[in-house]
Amino acid sequence: MENQKEFKLVKGVFSPEDAKEVLFKLVNSKIKYHQLEKFSLAERNAGDVNYSEERIHQLESSKNQIENQINLAQKENKFIKIDGTIVLEFIDKF
């Protein structure tokens, strides 16, 4: 069985507006996931929420950086090429 598999989730050339919509939906989805995970852990008193808090912070920072790049592309009247690959790899449980 193959241990690793790649999937192209986003690939193409986009207007800045379309790039923003695609990328923000991905990032916002991840932020929402970690917010729900954090809430669930806190409600159940089931563990440390630090990882989710850190990921939310990292994702919000990435979102700000993406927005800055998109604004620059708009200002320079450019399109944006996106090549987003997800790599899945099977690993042993910890």
Score class of each variant (00 low, 15 high):
G47S: 02
N45S: 11
N71I: 08
N64T: 13
L88P: 01
A19L: 05
I91C: 09
V49Q: 03
L59Y: 06
A19I: 07
D48K: 10
N28M: 08
L41C: 01
N50G: 09
G84M: 14
S52V: 00
N50E: 12
Y51N: 05
K20C: 07
K81R: 14
V10K: 05
N68G: 06
Q65F: 11
S40W: 07
N28T: 06
K75F: 15
G47K: 06
Q74C: 08
A73V: 06
H57P: 00
I80W: 00
F24D: 01
I86P: 06
A42F: 05
E67Q: 14
L59S: 02
Y33P: 01
N50T: 08
E89I: 14
E53M: 08
Y33I: 04
E67P: 02
I82N: 00
D83L: 06
I82E: 03
D92G: 01
S52L: 00
D18I: 10
S52M: 01
E21V: 15
I31L: 06
K5C: 05
V87K: 15
F14C: 07
K38T: 01
E89R: 15
Q74Y: 09
E2L: 11
K38R: 12
P16S: 10
L23H: 00
V13M: 09
A46W: 06
H34I: 01
P16K: 03
K30H: 09
S15L: 12
S61E: 14
G47D: 03
N71M: 11
P16W: 04
H34S: 04
I31W: 03
N77E: 15
D48C: 01
V13N: 11
N45C: 05
D83W: 00
Q74K: 15
D18T: 14
D92W: 03
M1K: 06
P16Q: 09
V10T: 03
K75P: 02
E67H: 11
K78Y: 05
I82Y: 05
F79E: 12
I66T: 10
A42N: 02
K63P: 03
E60V: 04
N64L: 13
L26K: 11
E43N: 08
K5G: 00
L26Y: 11
K38S: 05
G47P: 02
N68P: 01
S15V: 10
N77R: 15
K25T: 13
G84I: 08
K75C: 12
F90N: 09
K5D: 02
P16A: 07
L36Y: 07
E89H: 12
Q74W: 05
E37C: 00
V87F: 07
E54F: 08
N77C: 10
Q4N: 09
F7D: 01
K75G: 06
D48F: 02
F14L: 04
L23T: 00
K38Y: 00
K20H: 11
N68E: 15
N68F: 06
A42Q: 10
Y33T: 07
G84W: 15
S62N: 10
F94C: 03
N28Y: 01
I91Y: 09
V10A: 04
